[in-house]
Design a protein around this nucleic acid. Structure first.
Lengths: 223, 223
DNA sequence: AAACATTTGTCCGTATGTATA
DNA sequence: ATATACATACGGACAAATGTT
């Protein structure tokens, strides 16, 4: 029986990592609801592993702020209020603004072209009303900018906040609008002009605007 | 035999937390050097616990970026170059600027007075040449501002970066100068004037200046 | 007040994987 | 290439702590 040569690479991940990814996904997409109790023995059985990797995964999720642990009492999914976007987006906006600023002198025209393509896909998804796909494109767009800032400390800080943004999307706090399409293009223009201040300013606005839009939507739905 | 009434509270911490705090301290103060190998069995014996809490503590330190783990191979203290301040301080400065901005409308005169006292202690420590004490006062000063921003996501992001700043201090990358004394006072004035833009700008400069001073010092020592 | 039930915290043995002789 | 040494990854059992009946 022939053995595929690329056998080891595809799924050689530890039980801990699989548990982490799976539980995180369940929390983000709402399968595990806020305040829901997390019993490590149950999760262990559900994922077919022992308690050890589950415990370790839960501790990492605790650091990320997705679960809270009460020693000797219990572990649960952290609660999340829709208004939390007002807490999460300002720091994320500040960091993404810095990322845009730092990336400006480093980014290549090739990368800018790639970003332009992603923004087109983002635009198509928005027009089609496929908001989940739009969200993924938006995430890809911003991640490429962060990568190009070439600062691991910055990248880590951003990724910790991003999980929360994703969760808020599933809790209907984040609304994607076509305003972002033009903002993205303006950022690309700023990159091409090597204008870090403008790039930073747009990046920040791009995130903070979502706060205003959320409250406008809230107001609409009350009327 | 009388039992102290406040017995349970003082040292009722888990082995994991003790291990985490101890190992983190050793890494920050240089007892455990960059690139040094971390054997969990050894650490377990040194701290008088089993390997489990050590493993868990190391995983948290890994997330914090103080240790790197190579599955199945080994765990070691992350390397740190003095130039890393140019990577760490920009995101920290951006977040502290945001903290100052958000704290401006929320901070009370009482708190401002407390900050002024801390800045006096900071000034005295600088004049005396007691830089470690100055560092602790500086940390206290900034932490109070972050607390008053009342944003847990922001506070978490900041504290993750702070451990690295402390380690850089012990590696002689961070230099404290008396310029900070006046900058702190200017921030307090901005708080009293309820001027968030100015407060944010000073907070950011206060951190970024350390980069310039580091390179000036490097240059001096070459001459 | 005390024993109980539940859940987390810790210990240690074993399996698995990697690097080296 | 095989074997060997070594470190991590995981599993399962026990101990400790908490809240409750």
């Amino acid at each position: 029986m022939p053995i595929p040569s690329n056998y080891s690479s595809p799924t050689r991940v530890s039980a801990k990592k699989r548990a982490f990814a799976q539980i995180q996904e369940w929390i983000i997409d709402g399968t595990l609801q806020p305040k829901e109790k997390l019993n490590d023995a149950e999760l262990a059985q559900a994922l077919g592993v022992s308690r050890t990797p589950i415990r370790e995964a839960l501790q990492l999720l605790n650091v990320q702020g997705l679960v809270e642990m009460f020693p000797g009492v219990g572990t649960q999914v952290t609660s999340v209020k829709k208004e939390d976007i007002t807490k999460i987006l300002p720091p994320l906006g500040a960091l993404e603004a810095l990322a845009a600023e730092l990336a400006t002198p480093l980014i290549t025209q090739d990368t800018i072209d790639t970003l332009r393509e992603i923004n087109s896909a983002f635009a198509r998804a928005i027009k089609k009303g496929d908001f989940y796909s739009a969200l993924k494109q938006d995430e890809k767009f911003h991640n490429i900018i962060v990568e190009n800032a070439q600062n691991q400390y910055l990248a880590n800080s951003v990724s910790n906040l991003q999980a929360h943004v994703l969760r808020l999307y599933f809790h209907q706090s984040i609304i994607l609008t076509d305003t972002s399409i033009d903002e993205h293009e303006s950022m690309l223009k700023a990159f091409e002009n090597r204008d870090p201040e403008t790039a930073a300013k747009i990046a920040r606005t791009n995130w903070l605007r979502a706060i205003d839009e959320f409250y406008a939507e809230q107001k609409d739905s009350r009327e």
